[in-house]
Design a protein around this nucleic acid. Structure first.
Lengths: 207, 207
DNA sequence: TAATTTACATACATTCGTGTTTGTATAATA
DNA sequence: TATTATACAAACACGAATGTATGTAAATTA
């Protein structure tokens, strides 16, 4: 067919990623073929192989486009907790994260996709290593933040801060995972997300 | 080759399920082929197709063999909470569940497999419906139990019991998911699982 | 002990998805 | 304006996985 302008090409690039997101959520990653994605976006596989190397590259591009900003800003917030009210700042940061995920479905969707694509680990693929490194980064940053809170005796729980971080991360991931399970209707994170989070945060932070 | 006795056949049946479990955890479900499973068990695909209809049937059989008992006993406990100390009984039941998952790797592994195989839902397959119904059963049972606790004013949190149930389930799933992520080493549920759980339970139940 | 299942192994057919190659109309560029 | 690079579509080649069909030795049954 016809060649597109640079702007048109970028449109299809994003259309492909959007299509991938929708299908990954709807049918799961494994069941979604590159052909599916292309057709959903009104293209052929040629377009995909032009813009990406393979399916893993699509997933990584999804991460870059939809969550990398949130990722780095989240980490920056935690690394520079407000010196006057670090506990409040921490709480706010976590709450904001969940709220962002809920308010911007594209972001939440990609997070769930990422969670699911870490399924395997034997003979780690490049994507696995990449995503794992991102997760580790968050994990240790949360741990460090809680450690500093403990040093300022802003932690209620006597448990080790690294351990609490693991619990908090598990809780967050669990909430997102359950919330975004397709067909799920009972859990309304938009309404109750912060309440549920505070349920946990109240035990570890002074209110 | 040679035909086996009935007992031998049952051995290979279990060998196949064991092989499937190991491979699913190691490589993920999608990446594990029926041939892989057969070879891991020292058989050929013929053995698999003799004992099971397809891969989904293998997963369902895994559930039946490794978690159905835990499932029903867990539900029974929650449906018949000790009338004298329902809150303590509830707490104990949840803690036991996590401890069982941690102490018996085959059970924990299957739970994680099940979690991951619910990935998709569009055009639900029979397996999806089956697993979802099991999850719903647990979910509503926990909700009911918490409702009864609230009626007896044994709930500290003012949140709706159904909502708390969602949070608790998310937490549990998150913990198991993170804990059983292959290659993961930081979270030691065996040591700290109950502490982490109590972190949550203490906010909703009287100690 | 003869007949019949059983518990698989082996072979086959077919589909599906991937990666690559080729073709091409047009935008960008010089 | 001629050339070249771009953004794909279309065709091709291949392996891999599935499901099925067939073969078969031994266990079970009558």
């Amino acid at each position: 067919m016809a060649r597109k302008t640079k702007e048109d090409a970028e449109l299809t690039y994003h259309a492909l990623l959007d299509a991938a997101t929708a299908l990954f959520i709807r049918q799961g990653i494994a069941r979604t073929t590159l052909n599916n994605i292309a057709l959903e976006a009104g293209m052929t596989r040629g377009a995909i192989y032009w813009h990406f190397d393979n399916k893993d590259a699509v997933i990584q591009a999804l991460w870059e486009r939809n969550t990398s900003t949130l990722h780095t800003s989240f980490i920056n917030e935690l690394r520079n907790l407000d010196i006057n009210d670090p506990a409040g700042h921490f709480r706010k940061t976590i709450n904001n994260l969940l709220q962002t995920v809920v308010d911007q479905p594209e972001i939440g969707a990609v997070i769930r996709i990422v969670m699911l694509s870490v399924e395997f680990t034997d003979e780690q693929t490049e994507l696995q290593r990449f995503l794992n490194s991102k997760y580790d980064e968050i994990d240790s940053t949360v741990g460090d933040a809680l450690t500093r809170l403990q040093e300022r005796s802003a932690l209620l729980s006597p448990l080790a801060p690294k351990l609490i971080a693991q619990g908090l991360m598990s809780y967050l991931l669990g909430l997102i995972h359950v919330y975004l399970k397709p067909g799920q209707t009972r859990l309304d994170l938009k309404k109750n997300g912060n309440q549920l989070l505070d349920l946990f945060l109240d035990t570890i932070l002074a209110s």
